[in-house]
């Protein structure tokens, strides 16, 4: 494959594959997609959230899962970073903490693919010190 160094190279390559492949655009109906939100504030980034986000983007694509990966701010669980929020279509969202690459793989294989819960869930009724006041 020739190197892409300019927008016109990029356009050329896009046009070549456009006919055969559907290019995935922004989901217009996110409700029907798996939504993964990666907490990407200082605490998350310092704990490796970027690597986790790269992993989800790459692996959802590679494993043919229709999903949208976005970033979000601090969810208040700094002690459990990296944290991610996963929302399956028709389900309430679930927050997982302490997500390393192994856990991320487990979340995709078990929770996202089959709906089976895995360890590391942060209960929704958990309150931060601030919200108790």
């Amino acid at each position: 494959m020739s190197k892409i160094t300019s927008l016109s190279d990029l356009k050329k390559k896009r046009d070549e594959i456009k006919s055969g492949l559907e290019i995935r655009e922004m989901a217009t109906d996110p409700e029907n997609h798996v939504q993964v939100k990666v907490a990407m504030a200082t605490c998350g980034i310092a704990a490796g959230a970027k690597v986790i986000m790269d992993f989800f983007v790459e692996q959802l694509d590679r494993r043919n899962i229709d999903g949208v990966v976005t970033q979000t701010g601090c969810m208040g669980y700094c002690y459990a970073e990296p944290t991610i929020e996963v929302k399956l279509p028709g389900h309430d969202s679930v927050v997982f903490g302490g997500v390393d690459l192994k856990k991320a793989d487990e979340i995709i294989e078990k929770y996202i693919k089959t709906g089976e819960l895995v360890d590391g869930i942060i209960p929704v009724n958990y309150e931060t010190i601030d919200s108790k006041e």
């Binding site: 892409i4 160094t5 927008l7 356009k11 290019i23 655009e25 922004m26 949208v68």
Partner: peptide, 24 residues
């Protein structure tokens, strides 16, 4: 505008864009 796409969320497209950035 150039690619005539509404969003830049396609992973393959973004990989190409990243490679373009790296080359430059």
């Amino acid at each position: 505008e150039v690619l005539e796409v509404k969003s830049l969320t396609d992973n393959d497209l973004m990989k190409d864009i990243q490679n373009m950035i790296l080359e430059n």
